[in-house]
């Protein structure tokens, strides 16, 4: 019996990450692989996230699998006060795999302990969202032709943004250079800087966009949420400092790509969209391949 869950990106070794990215590449090239014929996947969304759910359900459908589940906990037994454990135990009987999103941190890890089928974490509060990291890495590899020696600029909310934290961890074995651009209140947390120090990874912190953007291979934009600032005046004063505009891309590398986990609000100006360096919509599409790969890998359908 193959029972492997993906809760945190660190559950996969670097070798496994590379293998999953290879599988994703193969699934993109050869889409007609009915790996999930006869299989049932439960997508349990204890908090709504249409984008993530559709991406997973597309991945499942493309491989011939069937989907059961709920997209809103208000319509399920959860709202009647059933414990997570009971829900997961019962749903385990109905499916071959559980994909879950939950507002509480650590919920997916707990679910993977009580489930009798593999669990894929589609986001547990502010904690982990590992398939996002895999699709980010897939996008980097696809656009740059490699994962090694990439100069990654991360911009916006580096303090609370779980996607940037996971990406920093997962990219660290590939000799990256990081440039972090953020308001001092939204800096990359100390624990991640210490992690990078311990791995000997180069990083630089900046408070504003500078002309060194010309060195970037990847510019990873994130949303700065108003709620992060107690002082709204401060938010108003700083929010425009972290907006990427088309005019800023003039001297950047021709191969440079802009990523964003989406949804975007205004941190990437609309005039960037037609620029071939804008990659965020394709990035979302890569999410389907990356999720197909993860699903087939944890089920042992692709090794």
């Amino acid at each position: 019996m193959n029972h492997k869950s993906l809760i945190s990106i660190t559950d996969f070794s670097t070798e496994e990450i590379l293998r999953v990215l290879e599988i994703a590449e193969d699934l993109e090239k050869n889409p007609d692989q009915h790996l999930l014929d006869g299989k049932v996947v439960a997508t349990l969304f204890f908090e709504p996230s249409t984008r993530t759910r559709l991406s997973f359900e597309s991945a499942i459908n493309r491989m011939g699998g069937r989907v059961i589940g709920f997209s809103d906990p208000n319509n399920s037994s959860v709202s009647k006060g059933e414990t997570l454990k009971d829900t997961i135990r019962i749903v385990s009987n109905y499916c071959d795999l559980i994909v879950m999103r939950h507002p509480l941190e650590g919920s997916s890890r707990y679910a993977s302990e009580v489930a009798t089928v593999p669990v894929i974490n589609a986001g547990d509060g502010a904690h982990q969202h590992p398939t996002q990291t895999l699709l980010d890495m897939y996008s980097i590899k696809k656009t740059q032709g490699r994962l090694d020696n990439i100069n990654i600029f991360m911009v916006g909310d580096l303090k609370y943004g779980r996607t940037v934290h996971s990406l920093v961890q997962a990219m660290s074995p590939f000799n990256p250079t990081f440039n972090f651009i953020s308001h001092p209140k939204l800096r990359m947390p100390q624990e991640y800087l210490e992690f990078l120090d311990s791995k000997g990874v180069r990083y630089y912190e900046h408070e504003t966009f500078t002309d060194i953007l010309s060195a970037a291979d990847i510019v990873y934009m994130t949303r700065v949420q108003r709620e992060r600032f107690q002082d709204l005046m401060e938010y108003e004063k700083t929010k425009d400092l972290y907006i990427l505009k088309n005019s800023m891309l003039e001297n950047t590398k021709p191969t440079m790509k802009i990523l964003h986990p989406l949804p975007r609000i205004n941190e990437i100006s609309q005039d960037v969209d037609p620029n071939p360096k804008a990659y965020y919509f394709e990035q979302a599409c890569n999410g389907v391949y990356a999720r197909q790969a993860v699903i087939s890998y944890v089920l042992g359908l692709r090794k």
Binding site: L84, L104, E105, G106, S107, Y110
Partner: peptide, 12 residues
Amino acid sequence: MNPKCITNAEPM
């Protein structure tokens, strides 16, 4: 101590 931790919501 994390109020958003699953351990504070489930009998576990």
